[in-house]
């Protein structure tokens, strides 16, 4: 856990029930949704993933596997196009302050689906979850994960994504809540023509600590990945970004791209980026870039000359970076009022 956010002092809470998950749009007839804890056992396809490494740390994975108190198993039938997004609303409150969710998504061949996870409300609590996504041949799966938990939350999110032949997984993390928040997305491009894209944002203020990792394994020819993370840090916030692109031998014609942009809004912020690129195959195109800096003074000056205050001008600049990703969220009420409003309030304080 070198250079990463320290998670040593975080206490794992004792087991508690959690009952306040709400899942919307159950009306699709090509979608089967069950609570994970009501399954007779884990699906064989999930059990077969035992050797795929993923997650923040072993202890978080084990905790979910042994003690999950929430989560859904979602199956999308073959050739079905689920037009409306499926929204899983993980609400937290005083009674339900310990959320340990285990989500399994299986998209059958040539299906299409969008699933939104919204971790929200509450002020104080603990979240640790696993989400495993299997996108089978030719399917398209869009996942949006919004983390807007209260300021006294500890949040951990472990994700495993298996991309099948010519399948596509589009991923988006929106991280604006919690005191300590760590997520890890491990992506296995195991079959020809698989694609993974990620467009994600974060905003860290006060003493928020974020630890964000994407690990993309290219194990088959003609696989493509693109990871784009943009964020802003204010106050004494700290963010660590780990982006591993690992191209295994044999992944010919693989294309990988990775980008991180961080806006630094205060002298007291801390930003660590470790964009590593491992390459065991020569016939590839791989590149990554990372940049960090302040808002360009000339731009600020221009906006202020049009009558905006310094803070408003700064907000505009932050919005210019974050909004293109927020606009991808297919979930209007959350997008417009809550997320954008939240960002506005956090920048102008």
């Amino acid at each position: 856990m070198w250079k990463r956010v320290s998670m040593e002092e975080i206490q794992q809470p004792s087991y508690k029930e959690y009952t306040s998950a709400v899942i919307k749009d159950l009306s699709h007839d090509t979608v089967k949704i069950k609570e994970t804890k009501k399954l007779a056992g884990l699906p064989t396809e999930i059990l077969a993933l035992r050797d795929k490494a993923f997650g923040i740390e072993g202890k978080f994975i084990n905790m979910v596997k042994d003690f999950y108190n929430a989560g859904f198993h979602i199956e999308i039938s073959q050739n079905s196009n689920v037009e409306k997004p499926i929204v899983i609303d993980y609400i937290t409150n005083e009674q339900n302050d310990t959320l340990i969710d285990y989500n399994i998504i299986e998209a059958e061949a040539n299906s299409q689906v969008t699933i939104v996870f919204d971790y929200n409300s509450g002020t104080k609590g603990f979240h640790n979850g696993i989400t495993q996504v299997i996108a089978k041949e030719g399917s398209t799966v869009n996942i949006v994960k919004i983390q807007r938990l209260g300021d006294e939350f500890n949040d951990f999110d472990n994700n495993l994504v298996i991309v099948g032949k010519n399948a596509m997984v589009n991923w988006s993390n929106v991280v604006i809540g919690s005191k300590v928040s760590a997520f890890d997305v491990a992506v296995y491009l195991d079959e020809v023509g698989g694609t993974f894209t990620s467009k994600s944002i974060f905003l860290g203020v006060d003493s928020q600590k974020y630890d964000m990792a994407y690990k993309v394994y290219h194990q088959a020819p003609k696989t493509t990945s693109s990871v784009d993370l943009k964020g802003a840090l204010k106050g004494s916030a700290k963010a660590t970004f780990i982006g591993n692109i690992d191209i295994k031998k044999g992944a010919k014609k693989a294309k990988a791209e990775e980008n991180e942009t961080v806006l630094l809004l205060d002298k007291t912020v801390k930003s660590v980026a470790i964009p590593a690129l491992y390459c065991g195959e020569d016939d590839v195109q791989a590149n990554h870039s990372a940049s960090a800096g302040q808002i360009d003074e000339d731009k600020l000056y221009y906006v202020m000359s049009r009558g905006f205050s310094l803070e408003e001008a700064r907000l505009l600049m932050v919005q210019a970076i974050l909004n293109p990703v927020i606009d991808l969220i297919p979930y209007d009420p959350v997008r417009e009022i809550i997320i954008k409003g939240h960002i506005g309030r956090r920048i102008i304080k």
């Binding site: 205060d266 964009p275 195109q285 990554h288 870039s289």
Partner: peptide, 19 residues
């Protein structure tokens, strides 16, 4: 590469490519 920044008034760029 590891990039650690503890200050806002900086201008940092990193690029890598393999092929």
């Amino acid at each position: 590469p590891v990039i650690e920044i503890e200050n806002d008034n900086v201008d940092i760029g990193h690029e890598a490519k393999v092929g």
